Amino acid sequence: KKYKVVEVKENKDGTVELVVENENGEKKKITLSKEELDKLKAGDTVELK
């Protein structure tokens, strides 16, 4: 499934919390490390299994 990044929030521990949404409007929260996030920004599309 493809999800669009709608919100990006940095946590104090250096991880980043993303809120992503698919075309049905379903939202998910995922947490990434700073390194994983470096290639993402709001409006990008991510694929989740």
Rank of each mutant, 00 (worst) to 15 (best):
K1Y: 07
K1S: 08
K1I: 13
K1D: 13
K1N: 09
K1V: 14
K1C: 15
K2A: 06
K2C: 15
K2M: 11
Y3N: 01
Y3L: 05
Y3C: 10
Y3M: 04
K4Y: 11
K4Q: 07
K4R: 09
V5P: 00
V5W: 02
V5T: 01
V5M: 02
V6Y: 04
V6P: 00
E7H: 06
E7G: 10
E7R: 06
E7Y: 08
V8R: 06
V8P: 00
E10F: 08
E10C: 15
E10D: 13
N11F: 09
N11Y: 08
N11R: 06
K12T: 09
K12Y: 08
K12P: 13
D13I: 03
D13T: 02
D13G: 03
D13M: 02
G14K: 02
G14E: 02
G14M: 01
G14A: 02
T15E: 04
T15S: 07
T15N: 05
T15L: 06
V16P: 00
V16F: 13
V16Q: 03
V16K: 07
E17L: 09
E17P: 00
E17G: 06
E17T: 09
E17M: 12
L18C: 04
L18W: 03
V19A: 03
V19D: 03
V19M: 07
V20C: 07
V20L: 10
V20E: 00
V20T: 01
V20I: 10
V20M: 06
V20D: 00
V20H: 01
E21Y: 05
E21I: 08
E21Q: 08
N22Y: 03
N22I: 03
N22Q: 03
N22V: 05
N22T: 10
E23L: 06
E23Q: 09
E23N: 04
E23A: 09
N24M: 13
N24S: 12
N24C: 15
N24Q: 12
G25A: 05
G25I: 00
G25D: 01
G25Y: 03
E26Y: 10
E26I: 06
E26T: 05
E26G: 06
E26N: 04
K27G: 03
K27Y: 11
K27V: 11
K27E: 04
K28M: 14
K28S: 11
K29L: 10
K29S: 09
K29T: 14
K29M: 09
K29H: 13
I30Y: 11
I30D: 00
I30E: 00
T31F: 07
T31N: 08
T31V: 11
T31C: 14
T31Q: 09
T31M: 10
S33E: 13
S33F: 12
S33G: 13
S33L: 14
S33R: 14
K34H: 14
K34L: 10
K34E: 11
K34G: 14
E35V: 13
E35F: 14
E35L: 13
E35A: 14
E35W: 15
E36I: 12
E36A: 13
E36V: 11
L37S: 15
L37I: 14
L37T: 15
L37K: 15
L37D: 05
D38S: 10
D38P: 15
K39P: 14
K39T: 14
K39S: 14
L40W: 11
L40G: 01
L40C: 10
K41Y: 05
K41H: 07
K41V: 11
K41P: 03
K41C: 11
K41E: 09
A42V: 15
A42M: 11
A42I: 15
A42L: 13
A42T: 09
A42Y: 04
G43T: 02
G43D: 03
G43H: 02
G43E: 04
D44H: 03
D44M: 04
D44A: 02
D44S: 03
T45S: 11
T45D: 13
T45A: 04
T45E: 14
V46N: 06
V46E: 13
V46M: 08
V46T: 05
E47Q: 02
E47F: 10
L48N: 02
L48T: 02
L48H: 03
L48I: 13
L48G: 01
K49Y: 09
K49S: 15
K49I: 15
